[in-house]
Design a protein around this nucleic acid. Sequence first.
DNA 1: TCGCCGGTCT
Length: 645
Amino acid sequence: MSYFSLCHKLFDGYVKCGSLAEARRLFDDLPNPHIVAWNYMISSHVSHGKTAEAIQLYEKMLEGGVIPDEYTFSSVFKAFSDLGLVRKGQRAHALSVVLGFEIFNGFVASALVDMYTKFDKMRDAHLILDRVVEKDVVLFTALIVGYAQRGHDNEALQVFENMVSQGIKANEYTLSSILISCGNLGNIVKGKLIHCLVIKSGLESAVASQTSLLTMYLRCSLVDDSIKVFNQLSHANQVTWTSLISGLVENGREEIALSTFREMIRSSINPNSFTLSGVLQACSSIAMLEVGEQIHGIIVKIGVEGDKYAGAALINLYGKCGNTDMARFVFDALTEVDVVSINSMIYAYAQNGFGHEALKLFERMKSLRLEPNDVTFISVLLACNNSGLVDKGCQVFASIRSNYKIELTRDHYACMIDLLGRSRRLEEAEMLIKEVRNPDMVIWRTLLNACRIHGEVEMAERVMKKVLELAPGDEGTHILLTNLYASAGKWNQVIEMKSTIRDLKLKKSPAMSWVDVDREVHTFMAGDLSHPISHEILEILHELIEKVKTLGYNPDTKFVLQDLEEEKKIRSLYYHSEKLAIAFALWKTSGRNTNIRIFKNLRVCGDCHTWLKFVSSLTGRDIIARDAKRFHHFKEGVCSCGDYW
DNA sequence: TCGCCGGTCT
């Protein structure tokens, strides 16, 4: 046995037993290590994630006068790309050109392409592929993957077709990646073609291909097809399960996503932070705080509470469930604060009406030299909007244009239009719409809502036309205008609108509130006294109303949309769904001092808002109400929205 | 002794 192969066997033994350090000690004792030994050490360090050490070894090797070969380069390029060391990578690239590896060796070339795509230097990567004399599937795949992962899905498809036309057969790596691009593009026709190709190539049992197929169907919203793919899987792994769960959430199938998660656990597949953030998203969307808290428990148990994905998902959960303190607790425990986690926290404050907290965090972000992105500004503007910080909002909006290279989207404008409109600066709001490229229905409806708040019938009628041009049968718009006429006392127009709504067969979604008491959800509709214990509820409700009247509550009938006698109007106010839900929750939890969390499918009504403030001071309970748009935290007679919403 | 794959957050 030669000296080299003896050394090699020794290294291999140590590394395979997991003792890279032992191998390293052995290596360091060699007087003049051969190139094969250097390569072995470098690649072992890279594959063990010890990238920085791999680079040190490479540099030491060069200092020692050892000439790198194709093996050295293919390992070390990966190290440079992992650490984002562009300069060093380019210098090594130059050396590989001088030594004649770049265009003549497939291993070196594909590692180079991979490195440049990770540096986001797509032109360089593509040029290398073009120069390589004999291109193989790995080389093409490296470029396809690079394009796909940076969101250049059309380019990925082009390169793929180019590869196929050169008679090079795709492998499972190529197909996995290209399926994802089809999914991202929503190109189900190409996606199905590739599905056929997967079968034809005999790769349908490869787990990565299956996962990508699953993801492709889910991104194209073909949930049933994706479930079919999933059911045909022989061995679903952690990634496959996760892919299915997060895809279901994306398609609004939260309940199924949660049952799939439970099935995953039953199948003894462990979740990781990917899985858990998907499940948390399901909990946040449907405000299932209890389940979310259980997931939080699992996150702590498996030790990923500092993970930025799990963290952002938790912040989002607590934000959407109205618990900003918990959201902040999670945020403060993150190991790495990045722009997404800060955005999540700002957004959590924003939707709960804690504008000043949101702005403080925005300032801290700047002092941390984290570059804000478009989402940051949506969150900050929303924070100003939900707290009535009009001037601050205008100032922030102006600064986006002057200080940042961020393109303003319709969402930014919609937020500003809402902000201006609600503070009665309707003309300014309308002027701002002129700046929006292709203003959509949402933009105009935002202005329409502002008209409703301020009873601007004339402008509303003009704006209504715009909205209906863009969305002729939109129920929300008709209802908005009906409400506007009703609050302006124009009952003839209300009747007219109602008949239009009837003719168009538009259905008004009924107002509904629900409340979560002792892990049971109870739903209430306005005026609906069919709850099994409605007798007790009504008793409590009437008692509450009489008591808060003594504190100054005065039923405000302008929120009643029917033209009824005053007495009947007042009665209809009393049976609003949120009042029923609160009465029920107080009855169920009497003697306890817990917070009450209620949810409403529409926006909370003005009279109920006032009433809830009184109830919070009367009972000493904190009431957290999530309506269709935001949260209201009622505490000691005050609401976090500052009566501005 | 070497290269290319699938799932997460605002």
